[in-house]
Design a protein around this nucleic acid. Sequence first.
DNA 1: TTTTTACTGTACCAATAGGTACACACAGCG
DNA 2: CGCTGTGTGTACCTATTGGTACAGTAAAAA
Lengths: 180, 180
Amino acid sequence: MERADVLPMLGEVFREHGFEGASLAAITARTGLGKGSLYHFFPGGKEEMAAAVLAEIDSWFETHVFAPLREGEDAPAAIRDMLGKVDAYFRSGRRVCLVGVFALSDTRDRFSDKVQGYFAAWRDALTGALRRAGLADAEAAERAEDGVLAIQGALTLARALHDPDVFTRTLKRLERRLLA
Amino acid sequence: MERADVLPMLGEVFREHGFEGASLAAITARTGLGKGSLYHFFPGGKEEMAAAVLAEIDSWFETHVFAPLREGEDAPAAIRDMLGKVDAYFRSGRRVCLVGVFALSDTRDRFSDKVQGYFAAWRDALTGALRRAGLADAEAAERAEDGVLAIQGALTLARALHDPDVFTRTLKRLERRLLA
DNA sequence: TTTTTACTGTACCAATAGGTACACACAGCG
DNA sequence: CGCTGTGTGTACCTATTGGTACAGTAAAAA
């Protein structure tokens, strides 16, 4: 087993339990790795594990979501692609956003830069795409903020109501609202 | 000190640390109450404390937000009032939603009914008001869902970006979007 | 073949977790 | 006065927490 294989499993543990709630015992159970291996891969302990997961998430979004949003020729198509990728990533509302989980509660302060960076990058990339799609600067910024926050809110509400469809519906609504 | 005086302080501790992160030590520090008093007021321990806080929040929203939304003569005015109350409650984006915090992570399962009930009540009350404001059923339901989720998302994004204004802006945008 | 290197399990640690037991204070009241 | 109920501090309990130390294994590199 390589370090890279562990990251997704770590991500799920942090997603489900939060940073504080993700005990070494839970991590061991989920990954099948003992403390020996865990501390071999992540000498910095839980903090390094969470940082590594955050970095991997950031990199995934960077290549699959943010970059296409910035560089896509056809801006409206890039935005639609973003929504598709997001739907897949969050398993149509059945999965929660780790960065969002960290953002609430005081775990944010521990990973302040990464959390802030993730959302800022997303918002800015989307703003750019909306501008290229023909919107005025102010309008583009406003809709981008609205889009990012709607996705987060939809994940929260979907989970609270045990109703993943909330997320799917929101994505559909967003497609119309962003590109209108 | 009475039990009722403790609840707001408990609420802040859970808000900031989440359920798992809110250690008895943190609770003691915040409330100034030792274990003796704490377990006198809440024999059920942390679980009962969190349940009591959740109940108090629910009751506050019921009387100040949900009920006016259901019973207000002037529906558009009731919706505007809701936004005002929400802005005050969440301190213009500087405070986070406890129920939202619990909804993410596995704390949700512990308080599943309360979490679900809170958001369902909010959404349904808002749906009703929008209908009374003249919207068709489907459109009203859609906008209500959108409104509740935007508030949650705005709180998350505001906190992630260290920028409470995100919340204020969202509330403004929402006023236009809901009543348009 | 020898020597590294990457990995893993076990035992252990001090600190903290949530929770209990109980003696005590101090009202209000008869 | 004495009694009773509501609070509160202290001491204590066991389980678990995150983390360390280290001996061992196995495979690759020399």
